[in-house]
């Protein structure tokens, strides 16, 4: 077992294979590191910065940094959770999140993190950006108001030739998701479903369905995200 590494998370002794990302290694050791952009099996991007931890004192994203022998990781500290909360708040003011009328409410990872961090109101002023809802595609509705630019759709969904269907357009504060005009129209049922699944928020929704699960029985109605660890 030469490739097993010892490391600690918040002082707790942990064990994982060398080269595992910190976030996966934490999960294997039953430690929850919150994230919005990371998705198992998809190359990490470090976009949302929510999984930021301190590795031997240095700030790093747990999705992109890999475990090594003797690493000391801080995770559930007041400082880090406060940073994470403030990132969640930024994402709320950046877009237009009308949770009461959102089909994803109760199953949304952004909202779930806001609950977990007990966000009553973002500390930052709302931007109320003017954004579109693109309902021109046969299988999905793309609501740009709710997009947090986590790039999960960009990374996880490609067509059979490996071409991008979702992509980033422009840069900085103007960045938004662009749907390939040809490929998005030809999205297979399976890919469409996957796109809906990977999106952590309600920015990619299936056409013609919504509010299926009754309130009280949705994913995050009773237990905070991460409470399974």
């Amino acid at each position: 077992m030469a490739d097993l590494n010892n490391f600690t998370i918040d002082g707790l002794k942990c064990l994982a294979r060398e080269g595992t990302s910190i976030i996966d290694a934490a999960r294997q050791n039953d430690q929850f590191i919150p994230t919005l952009c990371n998705l198992e099996g998809v190359p990490p991007k470090g976009a949302c910065r929510v999984c930021t931890v301190r590795v031997n004192g240095k700030l790093m994203t747990a999705c992109t940094a890999k475990i090594s022998q003797g690493m000391e990781i801080e995770n559930q500290t007041e400082e880090l959770n406060e940073m994470r909360k403030s990132i969640v708040e930024m994402l709320f003011v950046e877009g237009n999140h009308f949770c009461p009328s959102c089909e994803k409410s109760g199953e949304c990872e952004l909202q779930a993190l806001a609950y977990r961090f007990e966000m009553t109101v973002p500390r930052y002023p709302y931007f109320y950006p003017k954004r579109n809802i693109d309902a021109s595609h046969p299988r999905i509705v793309k609501d740009h108001n709710r997009c947090i630019l986590c790039k999960r759709c960009v990374r996880a969904i490609k067509d059979e030739k490996g071409r991008s269907i979702f992509a980033f357009l422009d840069r900085g504060f103007e960045t938004r998701i662009y749907l390939d005009p040809d490929l998005a129209g030809q999205l297979t049922e399976e890919r469409a479903r996957k796109a809906v699944e990977v999106c952590p928020v309600g920015a990619i929704m299936p056409r013609g369905e919504g509010f299926k699960t009754p309130i009280g029985r949705r994913k995050y109605d009773r237990h905070p995200i991460g409470s399974d660890m």
Binding site: F92, N96, F98, V121, Y126, Y128
Partner: peptide, 18 residues
């Protein structure tokens, strides 16, 4: 005290903000 989403973030009426 701001009570409810409309007081906190405008709520549904704020959908006109764009």
């Amino acid at each position: 005290v701001s009570v409810g989403e409309c007081a906190i973030m405008g709520g549904l009426p704020a959908m006109r903000n764009g």
